[in-house]
Design a binder for these strands. Sequence first.
DNA 1: GAGAGACTACTCGGATACAGTCTGTCCGAGTAAATCCGG
DNA 2: CCGGATTTACTCGGACAGACTGTATCCGAGTAGTCTCTC
Lengths: 161, 161
Amino acid sequence: MVLKSQVEWALHCCAILAGLPVGKYLPTKDLAELHGLPKEYLSKALQSLSQAGIVTSTLGPSGGYRLAKAPTDTSFLDVVEAIEGKQSTFVCTEIRKNNPCRKAGTRDGKSCAVARVMWKADQAWRASLRETTLADLVETLEDEVPAAVWKETFAWVTARI
Amino acid sequence: MVLKSQVEWALHCCAILAGLPVGKYLPTKDLAELHGLPKEYLSKALQSLSQAGIVTSTLGPSGGYRLAKAPTDTSFLDVVEAIEGKQSTFVCTEIRKNNPCRKAGTRDGKSCAVARVMWKADQAWRASLRETTLADLVETLEDEVPAAVWKETFAWVTARI
DNA sequence: GAGAGACTACTCGGATACAGTCTGTCCGAGTAAATCCGG
DNA sequence: CCGGATTTACTCGGACAGACTGTATCCGAGTAGTCTCTC
């Protein structure tokens, strides 16, 4: 069970979009070039973000994507769920119902005990992802990315919008 | 990102094996019949458990599987990792290195900030899975499964070993 | 020079192929029990 | 009747196909900016 690469791409793209001047848009082409990714496929990840209401898109020249909300209002979980979907990582197929020793019509009080443990872990994972926002990510990056690279990157971006 | 169904199967099988008389083995055939699963494919899950040292197998008549350790010594995480592997749910491909604004030879002090957040969530998930053991599972099942079904099931199992 | 209209070029979005993993199946190697035979 | 060798039947384990999701790509619909022409 491994997250699709689009999750990584989407998060890095969001970090860039978070640093964009307000009202400006950055097209997929530039985001792809900046991260060394296939432009056409990256656009699918951005489409998912758009449908989830995380980013907003505009067409035509100087079009592209920008964040739809303040960076403080979008968590890692929002991005992950936009790409992977909101369903739990564990799906219970209720195999206990196949037990030949069950008489027809047996009622189960609670949901499957196995599933409950798995779902609780899933919740813990999501809770952890919910703790960090895009604003936190940008703050961390400002501290850690070498100043030269950071500055140069946004000069590169600014030159294209 | 969804766990494979083998995880669910393996956990339910472990619950049955935990209730087995000491020294006795239960074959794949019976485990499959008890859960309504394809025997041949279920055996692959059990093979993974065997390789991980969670269960022990024996060949020949009255052969099969039994737990290799006490139920208190095997956690949900052990089972999940036996099936899904131990690698993190998030793999960082270091796309930050593709940034055209990076001068050759730029050193990164820390690992990618995006990856760190994702890995932390992965750890939270694993920690939650580590909290519950097979013994806890059996205890819960004893409380919740209708007594008739529970008793009948182990009578069914006992009749075959 | 200014404004309106048409044009152009650039963007996203969905529809379309390819690949890898998950799911499912098969058969052979090996072993423990049961059988058979001799003492 | 008892012990041992042989047979047998049952088990796991790895090798072999099919289905589905993830990956990658293409082309069309739509729009914002630009250019041109007229007043």
